[in-house]
Structures are given as C-alpha cells and as structure tokens.
Amino acid sequence: MSAHYILRKLVQAILTIVAIVALNFVLFRMMPGSPERATKNPHLTPEFIAAERAKWGLDKPLFPDQLVAFAISTAQGDLGYSIKYRGQPVVEVVADAAGPTVLLIGIGEAIAIVVGLWLGARSGWRRGGVMDRIGNSLSLIFYSMPYFVIGMPLIIIFAAGLGWFPTSGMTTPGGDKGPAEALFDLGRHLVLPVTAVALGLIGAYSILMRSSIVETRSEDYITTARAKGLPDALVLRSHAFPNALLPMVTLIAINLGYVVAGAITAEIVFNWPGLGLLTVQALDARDYPLLQAIFLLIAVSVVFANFAADIVYGYLDPRVRA
C-alpha cells in the first residue's frame, strides 16, 4: 500500500472530522439554552449583555474566531457539562458509557461478519438452491427487523418465559463474585443483546454478500477458474470470495453508523448501560451538551472505522495497494 494512498485517506478522514465539528458548532449555536438565545432575555440590560458577550467571546465574528475557539476546546476534550449529571463534564459521562456499547457492537459485528458473509457467499454461489431460498428468506426477514424488534421476543421467550437468561442489565447486582463468576455473569447478560444485534446484521450482510457473489460469479476470471477444471468449492473460496469481499469491506464500514443507532435501541430493550441508554436519558432531560458529545464520539468513531476499512481495502486489493 502506498504512503500516498494512506495519506490521502487520512486527509479525507480529518476533513470529515473537521466538518463534523463545524456541524456540531452550528447545532451548538441553534440549540435551546445557547448563549445566543440566553442573551435575548428581556430582563437583562444591554450593558450587561454586551459585557457578558465580550467575556465569553461572543462579540467576535462567528467565523473564524468563534468556530476556531469551539474547535480548539473540542480538540482539548472540553465539550461542556452535563445538565442531567449535575455539572459533570460530559466527556467523563460519555467515556463511562462507551465501554459496554463497544463490547456489545464488537461481539455482534464479529459474529455477524463471519456468519453473514459465509451465509451470503453460500446462497449467492448456489442461487436458487435450497440453502439460498431458506437463507435468503430468513435474511430478508431479519433485515426488515429493527434490533429492538428482534430483542423483545428474545426477552419474552428466553428470559421472561424460559428464564435461561436475565431480562436486563449487564451484571447481577450484589454479592461478591470471583473473576470467573463475574465473567460468566457478564456472558449470561451478553447473550441476548448480542444475539439481537448479530441477527439483524447477519440479515443485512448476507443479503449484500449474496448480491456481491452473484455479480462476481459472472466475471470472466470465474469462467477461467471453471475452465481450469478446479473443484467448485475452490473456485468459490479462492477466486469468487476474495473479489466479492472487496465491496463488503466498504459497506460494513459505511453501515457502522446505522449499527450504532440500532444498538441504541437494543440497549433500551435490554437496559444495557451503554451509550444508547445514555442517549435516551439525555433526550428525556433535553441534555444537549451530552447529546452533542455522544454524537461527536459516535461520528468520529465511524469516520475512523471508515479510515480503517480503507486501509483494509488497500491491503486486500492489490490494485489499490500498488
């Protein structure tokens, strides 16, 4: 992979983040309780307002002064203070909630990528076969289900009904647990939420991988591989799959923003103490600084994930690597 390619992608990622920060600035100026609005209070004297404006730098032009100041404090991790969490810096509040969400999405994605790509490749390779008909129908159904719609029946059946798994939360409260016991407890709490996220993703990934394989199947180099008399499984594994995988890398990364949004709903259903639950609390309390920080964190993470995907793509595709 050329340094030029990596550099170009890095510049793109940084520009995107700059744009996100700028967008955040616009939101910040628009939102209720913004300094612009606070100064519209009729009970305040013009002199007082002018003094306050000067004190907070609001007398300076929006661009570039105020925007730059905003960007600098964002870069320094100063995103303001939470309303709901009584003045705690939002960065701390968000950091506490990020871990459980990363755990949930990470495991869900890992399972979905392996199972979804495998399922899609098998379906597309034997289009119209039994596996394709069943697999593709199931995938379409899961694709059509928001994660919380998958999660709710899971709770009713496996938690409330059969009692195999806890209905909510990440840990069982109380009691001293050894490390092994704590890990087992966490695992039991993870099963259902991860299943909900993974099932939804498997549906999406297998549909996309299927269409990618179907398209790859008609490429000339597949005819070449067949002409070579290679076993069918080998044609799939070493000729069709590596090529069909390429568009999937980009799609999986682009899709991450939606996965996060979906994970928010899954967290609500399972009362999972991550960013999703925090988002709902912030929304209920109209805690805008907190909402902004959550948006910024998720947006920047997604941009970085896309940058990582570009690097992986470059590694997988020699045409980019060169």
Binding site: I254, G257, A261, I264, Q292, F295, V302, V303
Partner: peptide, 12 residues
Amino acid sequence: LVLPTIVLALIL
C-alpha cells in the same frame, strides 16, 4: 453517507 444520521437526528 458516513455520518451516523440517526444519531444526528436525535439532536436535530
């Protein structure tokens, strides 16, 4: 395309 639009929607 890259922006997590639903999360943005929650603020907007």
